[in-house]
Design a protein around this nucleic acid. Structure first.
Lengths: 344, 344
DNA sequence: CTGAAAGCGCTAACAC
DNA sequence: GTGTTAGCGCTTTCAG
């Protein structure tokens, strides 16, 4: 089975014109008489002619589509980013092809190779938690494939980048816990190779330092798969809770980590915030109905997606090679709820 | 800027062969000598040759990509379905292009037209809440575009369909409330034009009937935009709560409606389940950490996506027109949590 | 103002 | 076993 559509040739035949005349007429060229144009347009509309985008792509060497690689769609942060990507792409008449790395380095490589080789005009990427080397992307970038990074970025490729103000977000989240009177604040975060991990860690450290609290290495727990593997989070949490100077608060660094931590605490019947407080990065639309409602550092996910797409399309459509690259840092928002409030 | 890649022609030139020889060698044709094949393969590998998928598509008249139209990605049910679609598509070497209707009829039409006209080989669709007529899809289907419906389906197009057992899911959810001792059970649901609305309503009614409870029209509240517009849900809820024989339980029919209802009840400081119990269709991965944890009718979203994709690819790759269509009905699961438990 | 023809990268008859 | 050629649908010189 295949889908049959009307082509320029069909129109030409029906109207006793040449294909080139029809082609020009359809695109409103000045060299075609008004009358001919009218005929052609009328016939095209009537028969619902749509140019074959594949043929156009082959001709132009551009596919009018952009590829997206995120770790996982099933995550409020990334789905909101994709929402943003989609809206801008649609408006500029680009298709969006979404792929997931599932935090796997292998799959990230496979996806990037699949998406490249002419089938997309550019790439929007957030690195997987497992990714430590970006040679696969450097190779594509060197060959001229435009790309924009967001959220989990790399310094090794010179191109546009869009991130939230991770330092500030983490700083504010941690400072809030300090202000509430918590003193032993743990930090559960992702793979140490991710840019966001470092930035958020720095914000956390600074907030402690500014409050005169000493930073304790033992309170930092890494989850190399960013919460995709529940056991990692379980393990991190268990270790924290077994310490003799057990933390009185936790600051989690990502969407999945935040919800998983809350879920695990609940299973262990540990009361939040009475026994341990919690603040986390999350874009969950349900943070207000969690038990307890979750104090959240929220990223402007939609805007990040929109901006990344704008920047990518600029790169794709640039007449001359772009040499000045932007690193856009958008503000986060701290939404204070019950999970971080000091019991009176 | 555009992405330059090596072509068959380049290989042919370098090896002093013809393009057809190279083409055949690359696909391991028997008519090519082992030696030539070896040379060609070696050169291709070395220079990282990848066939241009656009040219292949144009040639074959197939794009090896499938289009998806869902109302919204930012929703645990749909993102999980997409996860399923993606996994099967990837495995069978198809690209997935995801679009969102945002529950808008207009956008559904625009998306379906955009995706068709040869740029995708088939469509996987869940209808928007606003959609009452499916002429736009009938037109495409009649032209030979394979499509598979899931979740929100239509009877007007003869093709494969994949749904959850909405009747049974709603029946079990409602019966559970009855068993817990609730008697005035309201039902907040989506647009009356959606198949899922009807099926779930029937399950709800049957459960009441089997329990000897009389069905009350006034306890049914429709949200024509399926929860996308918060005010609709707000309105529905307010009306229910102001009744003099106010419901003692609510059964919500979709992901968004369930979380929005819970959120609104919390804002109004109405205790769940003490003042009103709640059971809802939802695939939220966080239902266990809601306040209270939410009793959920869960759909096998991943499997639905996988199955729909399998069926679609069968249609696309069928040698002869398919005339026997399947309607696959997958089981739902009732996860009982606190929101529906009768206070002792 | 209109048409013929080349070519985007690839495949597949059909020659040789 | 290898090469020539036509053609997928479209755009774009270049002639007429």
């Amino acid at each position: 089975m295949k889908f049959e559509a009307i082509t320029i040739k069909d129109i030409a035949k029906a109207l006793h014109l040449s294909v080139s005349t029809v082609s020009k007429a359809l695109r409103g060229s000045h060299e075609i008489s008004e009358e001919t144009k009218k005929h052609v347009l009328a016939y095209a509309n009537e028969h619902n002619y749509k140019p074959n985008p594949i043929a156009q792509s082959l001709k132009r060497g551009l596919s009018k589509s952009i590829g997206v690689i995120v770790c996982n769609i099933d995550n409020n942060f990334f789905s909101a980013v994709i929402n943003g990507i989609e809206s801008v792409a649609r408006q500029k008449d680009y298709n969006v092809i979404i792929t997931q790395s599932q935090e796997s380095y292998e799959r990230e490589i496979a996806n990037s190779e699949h998406l490249s080789s002419r089938s997309v005009d550019g790439l929007i990427i957030s690195l997987s938690a497992e990714t430590k080397r970006v040679d696969h992307l450097i190779k594509l970038h060197d060959k001229g494939l435009p790309m924009v990074f967001f959220d989990r970025i790399t310094d090794e490729i010179a191109t546009h980048k869009v991130i939230a103000d991770n330092f500030k977000g983490a700083y504010e989240g941690t400072r809030h816990l300090v202000q509430q009177g918590f003193r032993r604040i743990a930090h559960i975060t992702s793979s140490s190779s991710l840019s966001i991990t470092l930035e958020r860690l720095e914000g956390y450290k600074k907030a402690l330092a500014d409050a005169g609290l000493t930073f304790e290495e033992k309170y930092i727990k890494l989850c190399p798969h960013g919460g995709m593997i529940k056991e990692e989070t379980q393990q991190a949490l268990t270790e924290l809770l077994q310490m003799k100077d057990r933390p009185d608060a936790i600051f989690t660094a990502s969407d999945r980590l935040s919800t998983t931590t809350l879920s695990l605490l609940r299973k262990m019947q540990i009361e939040v915030p009475q026994q341990i407080a919690l603040v986390g990065f999350t874009n969950s639309i349900s943070a207000d109905i969690f038990h307890p409602s979750l104090t959240a550092v929220v990223q402007p996910a939609l805007e990040m997606g929109q901006l990344a797409t704008d920047l990518l399309i600029q790169l794709i459509e640039a007449k001359r090679p772009v040499t000045e690259f932007q690193k856009r840092v958008l503000d986060t928002e701290l939404q204070i709820r019950d999970s971080s409030l000091r019991a009176k």
